[in-house]
């Protein structure tokens, strides 16, 4: 993918260290697979983003989450949209609540089993995700972060570059397929 890896919002100049580019879906699939305690945080924009006729980004994320068997936290009010689609996320919290919990050294996760080692974000307004990721970068240094949004988030450890909608959709599908393949391989 030879797409531009610079912050989507023009004035959002990053610090001295920027996210590595997810230039192939295998990177994300491998990170999810390798993580001992991953978590997926999903914001309201997945409901607003239409991928194709009758299909929204939330549908793609549900496929991914189900395949990855990864706990999902629905932020804002979109738990309702998940439930309407027959998917029950592990929890619903505001982005500020889950962000601050992930940053707190004493938080032992949604299930009380210990800290997470990988947090994946998608669907949060760009500038909110920006500051959430900067917070985690600086105050939760043992946590790896991935932005699955279609706009480059330099404060994650890994982020897609700025992608056209269709390309982004393809990438999400490929990640899910890779996770499926591995699962079938393991089985």
């Amino acid at each position: 993918m030879s797409l531009i890896a610079e912050p989507w919002q023009r004035a959002e100049v990053a610090g001295t260290k920027k996210a590595l580019i997810i230039n192939k879906p295998e990177i994300v699939a491998a990170m999810i697979k390798r993580a001992k305690r991953p978590i997926l945080v999903v914001g309201h924009q997945v409901v607003e983003t239409e991928l194709s006729e009758g299909e929204k980004a939330i549908d793609r994320i549900i496929e991914l989450a189900k395949t990855a068997e990864i706990p999902v936290v629905a932020t804002a009010h979109i738990i309702k949209e998940f439930l309407n689609r027959g998917f029950n996320p592990s929890s619903h919290m505001s982005i500020m609540e889950i962000g601050s919990r992930l940053q707190a050294p004493d938080w032992t996760g949604l299930d009380g089993m210990g800290a997470y080692d990988l947090a994946i974000f998608v669907g949060i307004p760009y500038y909110m995700e920006w500051v959430i990721l900067t917070g985690l970068k600086n105050f939760a240094q043992n946590l790896k972060t991935v932005s699955l949004d279609r706009f480059y988030q330099p404060h994650a450890n890994w982020s897609f570059p700025n992608l056209p909608l269709q390309k982004w959709d393809e990438q999400l599908k490929l990640i899910t397929n890779l996770l499926k393949e591995r699962e079938e391989g393991t089985a």
């Binding site: 990053a14 610090g15 001295t16 260290k17 959430i132 917070g135 970068k137 600086n138």
Partner: peptide
């Protein structure tokens, strides 16, 4: 709960200082 909007400090001539991580 801190959400650094900027990771640098440029308030004096020592800087810019990188305060990240």
């Amino acid at each position: 709960y801190y959400l650094p909007f900027c990771e640098l400090c440029c308030l004096c001539t020592f800087g810019k200082c990188d305060l990240s991580e």
